[in-house]
Design a binder for these strands. Structure first.
Lengths: 229, 229, 229, 229
DNA sequence: CATGAATGAGGGTTCATTCAT
DNA sequence: TATGAATGAACCCTCATTCAT
């Protein structure tokens, strides 16, 4: 195996599922505001579930309302439209992962190899939350007709994700762990197998589920083989 | 470098665009049947264009009919529903690529390395047809709501695609070109970067188009690094 | 009385009600087209009834469809929106009157006084069709929020109406029947009592209906007093 | 000319704009009641502005509340429904004009001609307040669907208005200024040009605004010609 | 008294599907 | 066989009205 040296600092993937609720429920000034915030979260959570199972267009706001246990019109007290609700769902679901990854990479002090390994383990952990790949699939499929969403997704998710990986690669090149030509590698080369596997696992799990534990380690091993000096 | 040794037998990517029309216009018994077949193809081609640019739900059968130059009701003489039309479109668009790839791999007589290189060059050539990645994106996003389509897609596209790659890998292991442990590699590890890059190139080409010529060679190089003995 | 000299050529007000149907049912090429045309008229007639009794905003297209004996969606085969349907209703209801008046004035060969008298008798006859004043009231009330309609109404109804009256006045001045300063008179000064009386008669007929026969002659007499040399 | 003899006692049109506020702020028993009354006026004023610019149906109570600087629910502490609020707005906007006109006519001691002239000058001054004609237009258009409003409007505005004009006419006949047959003249004959001109000026001012100063004097002149002995 | 969050019926509009011609 | 007019269910969104705080 190539990933021998991988060490200590593992990602606590177990609590990834609580990202969203943690992220939104800040301290609230008054009781009224607190409730409003809670209600807003209810809607986002219900919408997430509906979008994930129905796709964007096929999702009915009625169903979102029913699932959230509120009236149909209430949604419009919190969001301007179905589309902006979807954007919020994407934001709330995907942002926490990005932020955690960013701060982890920044603070990490081990070797680049270790960091790369841990970063991808984190990614796989994040994708375990089945909503994430579903949203990714929806965005990938419908981005063309929602330019605003496409821009937002590119700026806030794709670009930062690329930056992280490039940073890690640069660090590895500087330390002599990775080959110099690795700086040219497009980050999609590295991350695509994780994204697609997550999506496939959802959409085709009836046909043939992928064993993420095995798949992810093989992927990481493959990456290290491709990068090593 | 790993990618220099690639040789001779290149794919004639230039005529990839004609796949579909070729694939569908099979021999027809009588003249009447021939016309029916032609009409059916017109519809599929028109539907492909619409599905590709609008997505599944947003595509209107009116527009398909207009583009095909026929009446709206005529579509229902050839297809039972919008959904089954979509399935046919997927089938007709993706099958030819599979079949060409299969016969190519079967007949190839060079090294496994060469074959792998050419196979992926073919895949990238096939994905150049911009309809293909869009259909993939749609299938990936909506598979959950079209179980029949998901099953068909898995059986007819994913499984054969995996088989091909595994065959090539086995051949390379047998010849000593690839490491023995490569037989365990999931084919998605190898193919995902091509699929996702194609989709990204469509949905985010406004943000940052990928140079396929560069990307594909880098991808192939990366694969060979990961597989080599 | 001032209107003594009024003579012969009276307006056949009795058939004013048939304007619309006459105006639209042109000869139709094929049977299919004929039916489409008929259906279109059905919708306009139903819409006229609904708009007249409910006003623009309060009119439900469901009700229009029910009254026309068709499905709700059918309306959109003939009109782009509720607003454009309303425009068509206005056009079909008010145009015939304008055109008849124009050709009558042009062809008339008697004195200006006679012409003025007959013109206003025609106007009162036209307003007997109770739909007309109702549409006028709606336009007057909602024009501000439908600029397109306002423009159309001004160009096609108000301006031509003014032109007719000014023509008659000029003719009377030339013949010495009317005072020279009458050329400065705004046409609204002359026509407003007819318009408002028609509207009042509809909206307040429960309170105190106006006897049009008496009112119109008094109005005409008043006009002649104000114009005479 | 007929309009030169108009004399002295002109209407102080300058302060017509303050009618409304004056009219509503009656003396209030206690301080609490005074505040309630003030709040009520705020709502009416805000509603007037909204109704005038949006029409009845298009006016949103949210906007009224925002404009009044109060909560949305508060409106229902003062009015039973949107409709009754509208009635109150009409009442408060149109009443003051009626009352001022009535007392002016009653107290006037000059000739009937002078009185008629001044009365119409007052009317035109009153209509300068752009809210008035808009409310008139709305009432005219929607009276059929608000029978209660129609009745109120007829009793409180139309009938008194007619009475005033008939009084002036009678006075003129008695003094020999007006022809005897003038007693039969319907008051709408005289007042319609003012009403419609005001409405037209609002709804079609983009197309062709009417110069009220000129128009009103021509109208008055026309009336005197029609009435004179 | 005052608030404003919550409601849910209802409207305009779309579009897959049907069927008479 | 082919058509395209007709349908009507469904969806997003609005807003007058209510009521717990």
């Amino acid at each position: 195996m190539t990933d021998q040296s991988v060490s200590s600092t593992m990602w606590p993937t177990s609590n990834l599922r609580n990202f969203m609720s943690l992220a939104v429920s800040n301290l609230a000034p008054g009781k009224r505001l607190q409730q409003k915030e809670a209600r807003r979260n209810d809607i986002i959570e219900a919408a997430l579930a509906e979008f994930a199972s129905q796709g964007f267009t096929a999702t009915k706001l009625d169903d979102v309302a029913v699932r959230a246990g509120i009236g149909k019109g209430t949604i419009y007290l919190y969001f301007n439209s179905k589309e902006s609700l979807f954007e919020e769902v994407v934001r709330c679901t995907l942002f926490p992962g990005r932020e955690m990854a960013e701060s982890y990479v920044e603070d990490f002090e081990g070797t680049a190899t270790e960091l790369m390994v841990n970063h991808f383990r984190f990614i796989y952990g994040f994708f375990q939350n089945e909503k994430v790949p579903l949203l990714l699939a929806i965005v990938l499929a419908e981005a063309a007709r929602f330019p605003q969403l496409a821009q937002f997704f590119f700026d806030e998710m794709i670009r930062p994700s690329r930056q992280l990986i490039q940073d890690i690669i640069e660090r590895g090149i500087a330390s002599g762990e990775f080959r110099a030509s690795a700086s040219l590698i497009h980050h999609q080369l590295l991350i695509s197998p994780a994204v697609l596997a997550a999506i496939f696992n959802l959409q085709f799990h009836q046909q043939e589920p992928i064993d993420f534990a095995v798949y992810s380690e093989m992927h990481i091993d493959f990456i290290l083989r491709g990068l090593k000096a």
